[in-house]
Simulated assay, not measured.
Amino acid sequence: MQAFTYESRPGRVVFGEGSLKGVAEEVRRLGLERVVVVSGAELRPLADEVAGLIGQTCAGVIAEAVMHTPVAVTEAVLMQVQRLEADGLVAIGGGSSIGLAKAVALRTDLPQIAIPTTYAGSEMTPVIGETKDGAKVTQTTPKVLPEVVIYDANLTLGLAVGISVTSGINAIAHAVEALYARDRNPIIDLMAREGIRALFEALPTIAGNPADRAARAKAQYGAWMCGMCLAGAGMALHHKLCHTLGGSYGLPHAETHTVILPHALAYNAPAVPEAMAALRLATGSDDPALALQELSRKAGGPVRLSDLGLAEADIDGAVERALANPYWNPRPLEAGPLRETLRRAFAGEAPVSP
């Protein structure tokens, strides 16, 4: 067996339908007395509900999270957190809400409770990406890893099918890249295969019946596994392209992951035969890259960057930015094949290895 190092991440996970009701107990377990609830504006009613469950221990609600975690927003929220004399954070929402809480924790070391309402998996990782001056920069530090994560499938029942599918494929991306990461190991491989399998089973069911509680719980479970993969292994071409397109061109986060993943996987496929074999089993398809694209297409999700706001004239600049400070990748990055990869993603063509 290969030699490897596996570093487990601390944290407590509370999983199950109705588990949100225990949020006050989790606050008490951490010994917190003045927590601030963080969310986006669209989730303000849910954030207020969480504040009510916490009771007198809640010092306030800040519903200002936005996509890509801009540093300017974080700095403004940080001033409010300090003014409220908060000693902890409760984030409820998708990657934007959890990302904002992480960004505040990075600067203050405040403990966090994360309550995800999508399937992106950010809540399980010590990774944070922040946007400033048109660029998105990521870093990995235990300071941003939530102390507690509460998974309650009831919170996802109202999640639109489109967002369910794109956030689920966003989670799958973490596991796909973990299968061929430079620091992959057998434990991560197990979680990656299990997470991908669970989401491939759950997402089509959710697309056909959004109220299916069993499918919603399975999707949360898959997102948890995939998030653990990102927590324990590195990123490669897929995440670099998504961070470039999101940070520099303002493309929506989960939708960009959904469009790019099949094409980034196809780019790397010739260099990662073991990962492709695992993905064939996890997806039940002889062509995992195409299966990922079809998963989105059949559920009405995006398959073209052109539909997300990228202009064809932006492709060359995106290639240059991705090559300027690349992440490690199992296949060497070359401008020509990379441009063809983005062109196919722009047009929504089938993923192939250029």
Rank of each mutant, 00 (worst) to 15 (best):
4 F>S: 12
12 R>I: 13
22 G>I: 03
30 L>I: 05
31 G>T: 11
32 L>R: 10
32 L>S: 07
42 E>M: 12
43 L>C: 06
43 L>R: 11
43 L>Y: 08
46 L>R: 04
46 L>A: 05
47 A>D: 04
47 A>Y: 07
49 E>S: 12
50 V>C: 10
51 A>E: 01
52 G>P: 01
53 L>K: 15
54 I>R: 11
55 G>Y: 08
60 G>N: 10
63 A>P: 03
69 T>D: 06
86 A>Y: 09
92 I>H: 06
93 G>Q: 02
95 G>A: 06
103 A>V: 00
105 A>G: 02
107 R>Q: 15
117 T>W: 05
122 S>E: 12
123 E>T: 07
124 M>Y: 14
125 T>E: 05
126 P>R: 01
130 E>V: 15
131 T>F: 02
131 T>N: 07
134 G>I: 14
142 P>D: 08
143 K>A: 10
145 L>V: 01
153 A>T: 02
160 A>C: 10
163 I>Y: 14
165 V>Y: 06
169 I>V: 15
170 N>D: 15
172 I>G: 01
174 H>M: 06
181 A>Y: 03
189 D>L: 12
190 L>N: 13
191 M>Y: 13
192 A>I: 04
193 R>I: 14
202 A>C: 11
208 G>R: 13
215 A>D: 08
215 A>S: 13
216 R>E: 02
222 G>H: 06
224 W>D: 01
227 G>C: 10
230 L>H: 00
230 L>C: 04
231 A>V: 01
231 A>P: 06
233 A>N: 06
234 G>N: 08
235 M>C: 14
237 L>H: 04
237 L>T: 11
238 H>L: 10
239 H>N: 10
251 L>T: 04
252 P>Y: 00
258 T>C: 11
259 V>G: 00
261 L>I: 05
263 H>A: 01
269 A>L: 05
276 M>Q: 06
278 A>Y: 09
280 R>Q: 04
286 D>N: 03
289 A>S: 08
294 E>Q: 14
304 R>K: 15
305 L>W: 08
315 I>L: 15
319 V>F: 06
319 V>Q: 00
319 V>A: 01
329 N>E: 00
343 R>P: 00
344 R>M: 11
346 F>I: 00
349 E>D: 15
350 A>H: 02
352 V>F: 12
354 P>T: 05
